[in-house]
Structures are given as structure tokens and as C-alpha cells.
Design a protein around this nucleic acid. Structure first.
Lengths: 101, 101
DNA sequence: CAAACTAGTTTGTAACACAAACCACAAGGG
DNA sequence: CCCTTGTGGTTTGTGTTACAAACTAGTTTG
């Protein structure tokens, strides 16, 4: 317990945010997902989803591809390798914390 | 996975903050702790520790007793029943999320 | 009696999350 | 042919945070 709580200090804040943790969790199992699918799954508003995705992209954890389905715009999101690694590390850390305390 | 990420939406934000999660984890096993002990264990600055403790108190999760050890002021912190329950619920939720995804 | 330590609180600031308003385009109905 | 509805988002505004740094107050030590 003494040193174990220090695990928490190094938790990746980009991923720690619940909305982004949910997004990352989804993206880690789907190859790619479109905007509205992510919105339905997470229950986020469009505005929040948009800004959380932007933050994941800034961090280099997600790639966002804006394309079209016919003439309708379509935003496709996928987790980058860095994102997958960060997610994995986050989970491992948190799991250790839960086990040790 | 579909519904499982929704678990994250209801995560207690007072506890979710890493600094407070560390504090709560410590307090959940020690009966009571003084300010400087908590500071050493968590590595927080006094200012941040002070404000995080205040937030735990506001939430009803910790009781803060200001007393003296001889003439030296001493701040004793303990987890309330509500705090212990919230911590337990938080852990259970997060554990479920980690298992399900 | 001055310097340094103990034990905190207050203040200032930059980042953040969230909701609400807004924008652009497209398809379908009257 | 407008005009309402739906899709797919972005921008803006606001209140809340987390954090560090400065400050306060009393106490022991040299």
C-alpha cells in the first residue's frame, strides 16, 4: 500500500477521463467507428464527443478520417498504435492498483 | 461491451480524481491519518492536499479534525462511512469495467 | 532574537468538461 | 420548388478543476 498509491500519480490523464476511457475501450475492439455510432454507444452529446475525439487525436491516440458515404459526411475514428499501447498500459496500472490495495 | 462502457459514466468523480483516489485508498486502511503523513504518502503539495481534503469533506467522504499535539497543530483525517461505501462502490464498478472489456 | 521548521490556507491561472447554440448540406413532402 | 426534417458535425460560452506558488501563523533551535 505505501508505494502502491503512487501508481495513480502516473495514470495517463488523456485516458483517465471517463468519456475518453469509454471511447478508447470501444475503439480498442472495433478497428474503426463512425461518429454517430460512438455517440450512441457512449451517450455523449455531439459537442462533447467532438472535443474528446479532438483530444485523443492531439494526443496521438486516435486518427480521425473525414470522408463521405455517398454525399453524406462520415467521420471515421480508429485507435493508433500509440493509443492502443497507452490504453493497455493504463489498464495494467489500474489493475495493479486494484489488486494491491 | 456495448452497455459496459456505460458503467464509466456513473463513476463517482470525487473519488475518480487520482489524488483523491490515492487518499481514499490510504484512508480506507488506516482508521485515521494526519496531514503530513498523507502528504508523504501521496507526494502531493500541501496546497493540493489541503484542497483535495476539503473536497472529500464537502462530499461527506472524510471528517477532518483539527487538534493539537502538545502545542503543534495536528490535522487528523478519517474516512466516513459514506466515504468507505463510495470507495467500495467505485472499486466494484471499475473492476467490473476492467473485467468486461 | 533571528533563522528555520511545522502545519497549513489562500490566491492565481491555465486547462477542462459540458451544454447549448450554431452551421452546412441533403433528402423527402406538400 | 420551397420548406421542414434529418444528418453530421463545430464553435462558443460558462462554471469547475487541479495545480503551483505565495502567504500566514505559531514554534523550536542555534
Amino acid at each position: 500500500m505505501p508505494a502502491d498509491v503512487r501508481l495513480l500519480a502516473d495514470l495517463d490523464k488523456v485516458i483517465h477521463e471517463p468519456a475518453r476511457l469509454a471511447l478508447t475501450a470501444i475503439l480498442s475492439v472495433v478497428e474503426s467507428a463512425d461518429f454517430l455510432y460512438l455517440q450512441r454507444e457512449t451517450g455523449l452529446t455531439k459537442g462533447n464527443l467532438s472535443s474528446h475525439l479532438a483530444k485523443l487525436e492531439e494526443a496521438g491516440y486516435a486518427s480521425i478520417e473525414k470522408t463521405y458515404r455517398g454525399r453524406v459526411p462520415l467521420t471515421l475514428v480508429r485507435l493508433t498504435d500509440a493509443g492502443a499501447a497507452a490504453y493497455k498500459a493504463y489498464r495494467a496500472r489500474f489493475k495493479r492498483f486494484l489488486e494491491k490495495t
